[in-house]
């Protein structure tokens, strides 16, 4: 935790743009470099910066570790859920063509979007959980909030 006003003001200014940039990387992955992994790390970096500057207690209020830990599983479930949905729609596992039978390319777009979202959710929450675990290791105050 830093009392330095430069860090605090800079973090407050940068926090939202970093997340917006992460979302840009997430959803622009079809056209430029990027995708779920990179976006997840960038979004997690915004939260980690917040935690470094304002302290772990503030970060725990902003993003409760228990909820973040649940999102680890939600990402994987979203990814594999798309695969199961493809099975139910009559195709192979992760065969996105089945999402839109009239226009397979459109189905691929939706499938890739959902799958990348799943990757992004999992990577973001895992990175944050790792930071929580390492940064508050041995801190008895953090026990109540552990995932």
């Amino acid at each position: 935790m830093s009392e330095n006003p430069v860090f605090r003001v800079t973090t407050k200014i940068l926090f939202a743009p970093i997340i917006v940039y992460g979302l840009y990387v997430q959803f622009h992955g079809d056209f430029g470099p990027g995708g779920g992994f990179q976006a997840g790390v960038i979004i997690a970096a915004a939260f980690i910066l917040y935690g470094l500057v304002f302290g772990m207690a503030a970060l725990r209020r902003l993003a409760p570790p228990k909820i973040v830990a649940v999102f680890m599983a939600i990402g994987v479930l979203l990814y594999s859920g798309v695969g199961v949905a493809n099975l139910l729609l009559g195709g192979n596992f992760l065969d996105y063509n089945t999402i839109d039978h009239h226009d397979p390319a459109h189905g691929q777009h939706i499938g890739i979007l959902l799958v990348e979202a799943g990757v992004g959710i999992t990577v973001t929450s895992v990175m944050m959980v790792l930071f929580f675990a390492f940064a508050s290791y041995g801190d008895p105050k953090a026990d109540e909030e552990r995932p």
Binding site: G36, A73, G83, F93, L94, G111, E116, V129
Partner: peptide
């Protein structure tokens, strides 16, 4: 995400397992 979607699913599960292990 598409041609090698299965591999990426595996990678995502590996990351998930790593997070779970640390927790």
């Amino acid at each position: 995400a598409s041609y090698r979607g299965f591999d990426t699913l595996g990678e995502t599960i590996v990351i998930f397992a790593a997070g779970l292990g640390v927790v």
